[in-house]
């Protein structure tokens, strides 16, 4: 027992830098919005150790799941704005208001760093009677109410991509089978429980490479160099240009009101950490696009993302409340 304890303390001590009089004076809590083993968790746990080194402090990461991440968001929003509680999250909170999941979003936070964004990919079960995006659309139109799409609940990536497809191709009659995450849905896809799944590229790429499922199209303006030969949806239907590029993203946030020097220090640390070669290799291997933006640039990205997505869902009739109520302007206005 003693040995483990000592080892643990010693190893933790190694990661902590010199104790400085300025920030960080004590450990920082990193609240991860999603469960252990998920994409957000993996990204945060692989970038934070580099940031710790640069900060010269320790960041204790905890998973706080539940209510689509709203529990974690509220926890950080209710903590002191002193930079000792970080929110490590994904894109979902930007849709809480319109989906009726809460009255807070990233507007109450300062983006320390938006680390990366993902590209959605349409994958299908190997036995599905279509091999390309165009064939899929034709098949659905010929066989209404037969094709089963995986979904991860209102506001999740599949619902947004499906809304986009409906907006571009006209209303398609498909069955949306709900799953509680893209992992279980992709498992269901391989077993034939669903036929098509819009998923983030990184989650499906290994199974596609192994031939366990087939990629129909990349939901992007151009092909992706990780999957050469898979067409982009924009190449088939130019209408997608209005909505793309679109994708989920990961970021680290602090509550508004955090002192500027603290935010600057955190931003610098995460910006530097995101340049680490191992981290870059890791992210690119999974098909994520590195962003590493903060400050005004990040704010602009967030509001553009929110406008586009919220109005897309509103027009698809998937929202609980209109984006207008929350002052989210229609894109292009």
């Amino acid at each position: 027992m003693k040995r483990i304890l000592f080892g643990a303390v010693a190893a933790l001590a190694l990661t902590a830098g010199f104790a400085a009089a300025e920030y960080p004076e004590k450990e920082i809590q990193g609240i991860i919005q999603w469960g252990a083993g998920g994409s957000t968790d993996t990204v945060m746990r692989s970038v934070t150790p580099h940031a710790e080194e640069i900060l010269g402090g320790s960041v204790v990461m905890q998973n706080m799941t539940g209510a689509v991440g709203a529990i974690a968001l509220n926890y950080v929003a209710e903590a002191d704005a002193d930079g000792y509680t970080l929110l490590m999250g994904a894109e979902n909170p930007m849709l809480y208001k319109v989906m009726g999941l809460g009255d807070r979003d990233y507007g109450e936070f300062i983006p320390v760093s938006l680390l990366a964004r993902g590209t959605p990919l349409l994958v299908a079960n190997n036995d599905a009677p279509f091999d390309t995006y165009a064939e899929m659309i034709a098949y659905i139109k010929a066989n209404p109410g037969e094709v089963r799409f995986g979904s991860t609940g209102p506001g999740g990536l599949p619902s947004v991509v499906t809304a986009m497809i409906n907006a571009v191709e006209g209303e398609l009659d498909v069955i949306a089978v709900p799953y509680d995450g893209d992992g279980p849905a992709l498992t269901g896809l391989q077993g034939g429980a669903i036929d098509v799944m819009p998923a983030v590229l990184g989650a499906a790429i290994e199974a596609v490479r192994a031939g366990n499922m087939k990629a129909l199209a990349v939901v992007d303006l151009t092909e992706n160099d990780k999957l050469p030969g898979v067409q982009s949806v924009a190449a088939v239907s130019p209408g997608y240009a209005t909505y793309l590029p679109w994708g989920p993203f990961f970021g680290v946030f602090v509550k508004k009101g955090t002192p500027d020097d603290v935010v600057a220090k955190l931003s610098a640390a995460y910006a530097e950490a995101a340049k680490n070669a191992e981290f870059i290799e890791l992210m690119e291997g999974r098909g994520f696009t590195l962003m590493g933006i903060s400050g005004a640039e990040a704010d602009a990205f967030l509001s553009k993302w929110q406008q586009g997505t919220a109005w897309l869902l509103q027009d698809a009739g998937l929202t609980k409340a209109s984006p207008e109520e929350f002052g989210i302007a229609r894109p292009g206005q």
Partner: peptide
């Protein structure tokens, strides 16, 4: 095992059918 998949991924392996 879900977390271990994450660990393999962080350590530069690509857990998946090709592993």
């Amino acid at each position: 095992t879900a977390i271990m998949i994450g660990a393999l991924f962080i350590h530069g392996l690509n857990p998946g059918p090709m592993l």
